[in-house]
Design a protein around this nucleic acid. Sequence first.
DNA 1: AAATGCAAAAAAATCGATATTCATGACTCC
DNA 2: GGAGTCATGAATATCGATTTTTTTGCATTT
Lengths: 238, 238
Amino acid sequence: MNIQTRSGIKGDTPAESSATQKAYHELRRMLLTGEFLPGEKLKIDRLRTALDIGSSPVREALSLLTSDHLVERIDQRGFRASTASNENFLEILTLRCALEEMALRQSIANYSEAWEDSVVLAHHRMARESRDHVEAFEAAHKHFHMTLLAGCSLPILLKFCSQLYDLNIRYRYLAGRSLNYQKRDIAQEHAGILDAAIRRDADLAAERLQNHYRLTGAFLDGFLSSMTTPPQGRRAGA
Amino acid sequence: MNIQTRSGIKGDTPAESSATQKAYHELRRMLLTGEFLPGEKLKIDRLRTALDIGSSPVREALSLLTSDHLVERIDQRGFRASTASNENFLEILTLRCALEEMALRQSIANYSEAWEDSVVLAHHRMARESRDHVEAFEAAHKHFHMTLLAGCSLPILLKFCSQLYDLNIRYRYLAGRSLNYQKRDIAQEHAGILDAAIRRDADLAAERLQNHYRLTGAFLDGFLSSMTTPPQGRRAGA
DNA sequence: AAATGCAAAAAAATCGATATTCATGACTCC
DNA sequence: GGAGTCATGAATATCGATTTTTTTGCATTT
C-alpha cells in the first residue's frame, strides 16, 4: 500500500522525497499557521492517521521540530506544541533585532554584486506576490529578509535567524492575521531597508530593520496577553 | 529480552529513563569527545549494535543531535558526524562572544542575590574539580559559564549559548586536549570574570569573558588547518 | 466524605521485519 | 578500449506489532 510514497505528482514543495520530510514540512506548516494551539498535545496516533504515514517518521519529524522550538518533548509523555507567552514573544523580538542586525551588518561589510542582485531580485518578487495570495507573500517575505542576511557567510547565525523568523510568524498567525498589518506601509519599509543595504549604509539599514520589527512587535504585543501559556494544553473538542 | 531497559542501577547520568535518552546522551558524548571523526558516516546498524538498542531510538537521537549541529542528515543517505572547518570554528567563536556578552550583560542587569549565590557556588565547584578528573572539570566549567548567563531570563538565547559552547568543546577535543590550555592561568581568568560579574561591572565582565574566549580561540586556531572538511568522510579501518 | 491504592485503558516507546533507495562492479554496446 | 547500463549487495527508511509507561476511574479503607 501507500503507493503515493514517491508522489512527485503535486510537487508544491520541491519533491517530498522521504516520508519524514513530508511529515516535517506538513507539521511545521500546521504549527506555524496555528492549526495546533500552544501547549496542545500532539498524539502520535492522530498524526499518524492524519498524515497517512507510520509512527516512526512522525516521531522523527517531531524530534526535528523540537530543535526548532516549535515542539516540546516531555520525558516519557510524548510531544506537544510549544507553549506561547508574552515573554517568549518579546524574547524572540529582542533576539531577532540583535542577531539580524549582526548578520545584516556583516552582509553589508561583505558586499558583492551577486548579493546586491539577489537582494533586489528577492525584493521584486516579494512586491509582485503581495497582490496575490497571502501564503505566497509570506514565503517571499521570508526569502527577502533571509537574502538580506545571507551575505554574512555565517551559516549558524543564519539558521538562528531563520528559526526566530519562523517563531515570530507563528505568533502572527496566533494573534490572527486579521489584524491587518498591511495598514502600515510595509512596502515602503521594505524599500527603505533595501535601499540602505545596497547603498551599503550599515547603520541606516540596521536602524530601519529594527524599526520594521519593533513596529510589528508593538502591533502584536498586547494581543497576546489573553493567551499566556495555559497550565495544561488540553484541547476541548475532538 | 533487554531486561536492563529500566536500569537505574548505576545512575551516573540522572536516571536514563528512555532508550532514546540513553542513545542521545551517549552519542552526544561520543561526538563531543571526538570519538567520531568529522564527516564520519554514522551507520544505524553499527550504532544499534554498539548501544544495544533498536534502530528507532538511534534514529530519533540522531535527529535530535542534528538540531544541535553535531550531526548532519543527508537526504536519503543517513547521518554523519558534522564536518569541521576553520571557518566553522571561527563562526562559533564569533557567535559565542556576541551572544554570551548579550546574555551576561542582561544577567548583570537583572542582578539578584540568588544569582550571585549560584555563580559563586558554581565557581567554587569548578575550582574544586579542576584538581581531579578532566571529565568532571569540563562539566563544572560549562556549568559555571552557563550559570553566569542564566540570570538573563532569555531561554532561547541560553539554549543557543549552550549549543555553541558544546560545539566549541568538540573542537577542543578534536585539536587534542594535549595542547595544555592549562598553561594559561585559566583559574585567574575565571576569578576575574566572577569578580566583575558580582561587582556588577558589566563592561569589565564582558571584556574579560571575551578575552577568555579569544585566548582559547587563538590557541586552537591553526591547529585546525590540517583538518579542514574532507570531501567524503570515509573512514579507513573499522 | 476524603484519601489511598489498585486495575483497566490509553498512549508512548521500542522492536524486528520488510520495502526502498543507493552504491558498487561486471558486462555489453559503441 | 571506453562509456553507459544493468544486476547485485549494502544501507536506509518505513511499517505494524509488541512492550512499557502513564493516566484514569473505581473500589476500599479510615
